[in-house]
């Protein structure tokens, strides 16, 4: 299990234990994190699992694929440098303790 902390738009923090191998989106949905909608279920189609990875942790993630980069242009909340689609982040031990900020809305 890998500890991940979500910071909701209102500042509220929720820490979950995420299973390795799952995506960050799947872990969020399984733990009832409301700020992740994930309408397409992980097909990289809907941009409703958008997150801002904490600046201190962003470098721990592998780089985005081009298709994810393109889809990030469709997020409801302004895209930032640390924007990612959580369905494309695979949980691994290297991500232990990362902090992830949620946007105010997903659509």
């Amino acid at each position: 299990m890998v500890k991940i902390t979500f910071i909701e738009a209102n500042g509220n923090e929720i820490t979950i234990d995420a299973e390795e191998g799952n995506s960050l989106m799947q872990a969020a949905v399984a733990n009832g994190i409301k700020g992740i909608v994930a309408e397409c279920g992980g097909s990289m189609m809907c941009a409703t699992c958008h997150v801002y990875v904490d600046g201190a942790d962003f470098g721990k993630l592998p780089e985005r694929e081009e298709a994810e980069d393109e889809m990030l242009d469709s997020t409801a909340c302004q895209r930032k440098e640390t924007s990612r689609l959580s369905c494309q982040i695979k949980i691994s031990t290297g991500l232990e303790g990362i902090r992830v900020h949620l946007p105010t809305s997903q659509y």
Binding site: V29, V37, E39, C40, G41, G42, S43, M45, C46
Partner: peptide
């Protein structure tokens, strides 16, 4: 119901789903 299979999932997931929604 995140994860339902009505639009499929993965690389063949419905590409028109945003339009449908």
């Amino acid at each position: 119901p995140t994860g339902h299979l009505a639009m499929g999932t993965g690389i063949h997931g419905c590409v028109g789903q945003n339009l449908a929604r």
